[in-house]
């Protein structure tokens, strides 16, 4: 899930100043779970921007999916044509998809933070850095690239403090945890498997995944 955070309302007010007619766009998937772009937050945004003419509010299931956005915007074609700008409560990918689909000025109301694991509402944790060089099969399903502040692929480093991380002393070093888990699962041999440096070509932006036609 993409974890987002609301921008300062004053920033949104400032950014919307040049525009009279606005549409507010929510995301009923990731941003709804984060309580940053669900229907409640769309209403709150409408209230914040009460000085403008809000011609429509819309919650799109996956605004990042251009097919879904295009379909949903067709339902408010007239309002869209009349709108000066759209205030989008979605991740950066969603906001850009909305911009491409509508070709209208877009004001992004959220900051996109990370790909998150949800423990429960309000408890989101980064577990994957999307490096494109996954070694989870060798590391007891714990990603050291993400869970180690240095992103070390063959750890621990010399800064380990007993079993603790030197950067976050309240946490165990992930490489200590990997070692313990591998031992418990009967695969301690995986611990010293050498992992090559990250192939940055796999995470060089902008990334694309294009299926080959058969």
């Amino acid at each position: 899930m993409i974890v987002t955070r609301k921008k300062d309302p004053l920033v949104i007010k400032e950014l919307t100043k040049p525009f009279k007619k606005l549409i507010i766009v929510g995301c009923s998937e990731c941003a709804a779970v984060c309580q940053t772009g669900g229907s409640e937050q769309v209403k709150e945004m409408a209230a914040l921007l009460a000085g403008h003419e809000i011609t429509a509010t819309i919650s799109i299931e996956s605004p990042c999916d251009k097919r879904v956005s295009a379909r949903d915007f067709r339902r408010i074609e007239e309002e869209l044509a009349a709108a000066d700008a759209l205030v989008v409560l979605a991740c950066g990918s969603g906001a850009q998809a909305v911009s491409e689909v509508t070709e209208k000025p877009v004001i992004t109301a959220l900051d996109t933070r990370f790909l998150g694991m949800v423990e429960r509402l309000g408890r989101f944790y980064e577990r994957c850095s999307q490096c494109g060089n996954c070694i989870l099969n060798d590391t007891a399903a714990l990603c050291p690239i993400t869970l180690c502040p240095r992103g070390i692929r063959n750890g621990p480093c010399e800064c380990i403090d007993g079993t603790r991380c030197d950067v976050y002393p309240d946490r165990d070093c992930v490489w200590h945890t990997i070692y313990e888990k591998l031992k418990q699962s009967g695969r301690p041999d995986l611990y010293t498997l050498f992992h090559e440096p990250t192939d940055w070509l796999q995470s060089h932006t902008p990334r694309e995944e294009l299926w080959e036609k058969k």
Partner: peptide, 21 residues
């Protein structure tokens, strides 16, 4: 030379790895 991690079994295993490699 390599600075060795110090502390538990995980640290020892990595230090050993450095020397063996």
């Amino acid at each position: 030379a390599v600075r060795a991690p110090e502390g538990g079994e995980a640290a020892l295993a990595r230090a050993r790895f450095f020397l063996e490699n």
